[in-house]
Design a protein around this nucleic acid. Sequence first.
DNA 1: GTTTGTATTGCAACTCATTCGCAACTGCAG
DNA 2: CTGCAGTTGCGAATGAGTTGCAATACAAAC
Lengths: 144, 144
Amino acid sequence: MSESDETGGEAAAMEEALRSEGVRLTRQRRAILQVLAEAADHPDAPELHRRVQEADDTVSLATVYRTLSVLETKGVVQRHAFEGAPARFETADAPHHDHIIDLDSREVIEFTSPEIERLQKEIARRHGYEVVSHRLELYCRKRR
Amino acid sequence: MSESDETGGEAAAMEEALRSEGVRLTRQRRAILQVLAEAADHPDAPELHRRVQEADDTVSLATVYRTLSVLETKGVVQRHAFEGAPARFETADAPHHDHIIDLDSREVIEFTSPEIERLQKEIARRHGYEVVSHRLELYCRKRR
DNA sequence: GTTTGTATTGCAACTCATTCGCAACTGCAG
DNA sequence: CTGCAGTTGCGAATGAGTTGCAATACAAAC
């Protein structure tokens, strides 16, 4: 544990959480978890697969998809399906946030707005609903 | 024109707009436009196809998709890709709105919030961006 | 350690929504 | 009317993601 840095610790913490949920920890899952914890961006499944294979080229794309599903249902990973693009993934360490998508670079910026959050709840209530989940994405271009 | 009601007028208005944009008005496109104008809900392509075929069973699903693309680029139709479901469509008559999706009935309720809209622009600006488009969806359940 | 039963994997085949190639057809400008 | 570029129907192709199945590998019990 002396050699672990932040992302190393993150992956380890996730493994811990998964083990206690009865998820079997395989070589493949460890590798995927590791790469995801190290990722600063929001990779899609094929990109994740590519990165995982650098460390372990026996991992198949199917397993990447299956593992992502497991991790998502266990609350360890978040899936985002942005407009007209394959789904992208990130670790669910940060509490909650919405996204700005840079239309030119496809870069993703995270933000939170308690104010918007509050207004959403209020609007739902006004219509007789309660919010189970929501999706807020701003497709943007850099201002010059 | 004496027998036309609101939706009839809506379809006619759209045809007008399209003709002036140089879009060729075929029997199929008229039928699709008509059905869309009459729809109170947000049908997906196969459902739209089903409804169109009641009036004209020579219209193919491929043409429904192609027509929807044309109508979308001409700004006459709006496409919405809600979570984990095929895209759904509506006429772009109302100015702009976001959606509440009833998770149980799949019903869609429209709403607007100038306040949220304003906050979105502000957030984008704070990050050096300007909003090109956005997507705000509230996945909800009825309150009891 | 070894055994063992079940979860997990790799592969290839499959699904689902949507798009495309192409030959036949048809609005509509002249 | 004519002509031809824009449209259509068909079925085949695509792209993202899922699944059946036999082989494999966790990890709990010995």
